[in-house]
């Protein structure tokens, strides 16, 4: 009997290996290994021609922590990401409730209208705002007609924020909708029946029960926002540096380029992300209790 089972196990193990190997290799080689490389790079030195010199140093991290250019970029990116996430949540939650509470035949079309921007090129959607906010663009045209006169709308931090919210909103709404759609609204009636007012019922019943959607949506919005550089470049006019702008410049366009410093910034960004997400999970899981 033992040999029979061994035989079967061997066959199973062979099949498993066959299924796993290509994916495992690909992810190790083209995902995990590159991450290890920039981790190693972050402790290396850069020469005047922008070449990586294999001399271990902590200088990259020291630079980041001591020069205001870098410190500010981190703070600015974190702040913009938090703000974007919170505003997307405040807009997305009521919208998701609205879709989930719509008559059955309306729900799919309403959801489709969220899906289309979700699947549409991010760059294109951000670019659309350039047309709207341009100095001789549509809003300024309207402002002129009512006599307010032209305003500088494009190339401001406000424009960056609008672009970020606009770009990320669908990523917030979809997981929220999934959670709220599963929520049984008769529970709110039960809470009211037991004497809770609307705010209490929301805070004690609906919010905890839809928390998985809130967490998923927030993480989906926060992560890309932290590393973005397109929005601040196209709508913010690259007047101030966000994390992504600096990293992009250090890797592609600086003179000389500085990959070790860029790597250190990327590694620190991952670290920031990890810490913030863990803090967020802790807070929200307490809320759930």
């Amino acid at each position: 009997m033992a040999t029979i089972q061994q035989q079967q196990q061997r066959r199973d193990r062979f099949r498993l290996a066959l299924l796993l190997t290509p994916g495992l290799l690909w992810l190790l080689l083209f995902f995990a290994l590159p991450l290890v490389i920039i981790f190693v790079y972050s402790f290396m030195t850069n020469d005047a021609l922008g070449r990586v010199v294999y001399e271990p140093t902590l200088n990259n991290y020291i630079t980041i922590f001591t020069q205001s250019l870098y410190v500010n970029a981190y703070l600015r990116s974190i702040w913009a990401s938090v703000l974007t996430t919170v505003i997307c949540l405040l807009i997305g939650y009521p919208l998701a409730v609205f879709i989930a509470r719509s008559p059955q035949q309306w729900r799919m079309p309403l959801l489709m209208l969220i899906l289309i921007p979700f699947w549409t090129n991010f760059l294109v959607r951000i670019y659309a705002w350039q047309i709207i906010l341009a100095n001789n663009g549509i809003i300024n045209g309207l402002l002129e007609i009512i006599g307010v006169g032209r305003l500088t709308l494009l190339n401001t931090e406000g424009a960056t924020l609008i672009g970020l919210i606009y770009g990320e909103l669908p990523f917030m709404v979809l997981p929220l909708y999934a959670a709220i759609d599963r929520f049984d609204f008769t529970l709110m009636e039960a809470a009211a029946d037991l004497g809770a007012n609307k705010v209490q019922a929301f805070l004690r019943i609906m919010l905890p029960m839809t928390m998985p959607g809130i967490v998923a949506g927030s993480v989906l919005v926060f992560i890309p926002t932290l590393g973005q550089f397109v929005v601040s470049e196209l709508l913010g006019g690259a007047k101030v540096d966000y994390l992504g702008n600096l990293i992009q410049r250090l890797f592609l366009r600086a003179n000389p380029i500085n990959w070790p410093l860029g790597s250190a910034m990327a590694v620190l960004m991952m670290l920031v992300l990890l810490v913030l997400i863990m803090m967020y999970f802790r807070v929200t899981s307490e809320e759930e209790r």
Binding site: P34, I38, F229, G262, M269
Partner: peptide, 9 residues
């Protein structure tokens, strides 16, 4: 993982 990290890596 933020896409920019994956890209530079």
């Amino acid at each position: 993982v933020p896409e920019i990290v994956m890209a530079v890596a």
